[in-house]
């Protein structure tokens, strides 16, 4: 366990070190990349709660990622044009304050996860995978064809939203914010894993009959973790939208779901820092391979296959050694 602990700490520290170095070397784009890693890792941490702890293979997490993104897009676009979001039954104004946006992102993605989860969890296994995928597509098509918020063009927000006490336009400040949120999410994931709830969930993943005989309904446990997972991924979506100052339906696309899942698997399922390692590796590959060939997806695919076939613990499995899983 000690080796895993050292690997986690080293990995977590690596990101701010890179960002601060880039800031001193005047390479703002590298800070942007580090911020992207932190945000995508956050999305992965969210998915990993459902996937690693709950054993729920969701291919529809892009729905929550996109809802978070649109929470930012909708609030900020109303603030940008000084038009109220709702006039009836009560007046709701747009906002360009991140805490407000985050709240809306958390609440709306949580509600969506509640509905999708309540329907999808009636099934399991491969049904669950396909149903979550289909619900994701439903949001995708809806976001494209609904004209009010830009449809397929998406929404461009010209100024990054603010956070009290920080200048989010400074790349390092925004990185710090995203990284802090990631740390909180990692802490939350650890807490859940060690709580009685997490232990019951873990037991339900391995044998649902066994927890049922103990008088616990796995459905409730799984729904709870699915909602939490959706909320964390939704928050990541809001941050991602702020990173790009732009939201579009492609956040809802099933490739997004696939990519979030790739981060988790590349890094190592159910490992605390798996998503972080995976997201970092993915961004690194994208930058390096993308430069070598227009067809870099072939290499990415091949690498992914090799990891799945021969390195089942992912990157963290290679670095930290086997067996962290039970400890998450």
């Amino acid at each position: 366990m000690k080796r895993a602990w050292v690997a986690n700490v080293a990995l977590i520290c690596m990101l701010p070190v890179v960002a601060i170095w880039a800031s001193m070397a005047d390479e703002p784009f590298i800070i942007t990349l580090a911020t992207k890693v932190a945000i995508l890792a956050l999305a992965g941490v969210g998915l990993n709660m459902a996937l690693g702890q709950g054993g729920l293979v969701s291919l529809g997490h892009a729905a929550f990622f996109g809802i978070g993104g649109y929470a930012m897009g909708i609030l900020a676009s109303h603030a940008q044009s000084y038009t109220p979001l709702l006039e009836w039954p009560m007046l709701i104004e747009g906002s360009n304050s991140m805490p407000v946006i985050w709240l809306l992102a958390l609440v709306s993605s949580g509600l969506a996860a509640l509905v999708i989860g309540a329907l999808s969890l009636r099934t399991n296994g491969v049904y669950f995978i396909m149903i979550t995928l289909a619900f994701g597509q439903m949001f995708y098509y809806f976001s494209i064809s609904w004209p009010a918020y830009g449809g397929e063009d998406g929404l461009a927000i010209y100024m990054r939203n603010g956070f009290p006490g920080l200048n989010t336009l400074v790349p390092l400040h925004f990185f710090g914010l995203a990284f802090a949120v990631l740390l909180v999410a990692l802490a939350l994931a650890t807490l859940i894993g060690r709580s009685p709830f997490g232990l019951a969930l873990n037991a339900a993943r391995q044998s649902s009959e066994r927890v049922e005989t103990a008088g616990i309904r796995p459905y409730r446990l799984q729904l709870t973790v699915f909602v939490l997972s959706g909320m964390v991924t939704g928050l990541a979506g809001a941050l991602f939208a702020d990173l790009n100052r732009f939201v579009s339906p492609s956040m809802f696309s099933w490739q997004t779901s696939g990519e979030i899942m790739v981060f988790v698997i590349l890094g190592g399922v159910a490992r605390l820092c798996g998503p972080l390692a995976g997201a970092a590796l993915f961004i690194l590959l994208e930058q390096l391979l993308g430069g070598i060939s227009d067809y870099w997806h072939i290499f990415l695919g091949a690498l992914l296959l090799l990891i799945i076939l021969f390195a089942r613990g992912g990157v963290m499995g290679l670095i930290a050694g086997p067996g962290e899983r039970a400890h998450v």
Partner: peptide, 16 residues
């Protein structure tokens, strides 16, 4: 053809 990719490339081209 991804908007977020285009934004990141634009950031990179302008910033670095």
């Amino acid at each position: 053809r991804k908007p977020e990719m285009a934004v990141q490339i634009a950031d990179k081209m302008i910033q670095s």
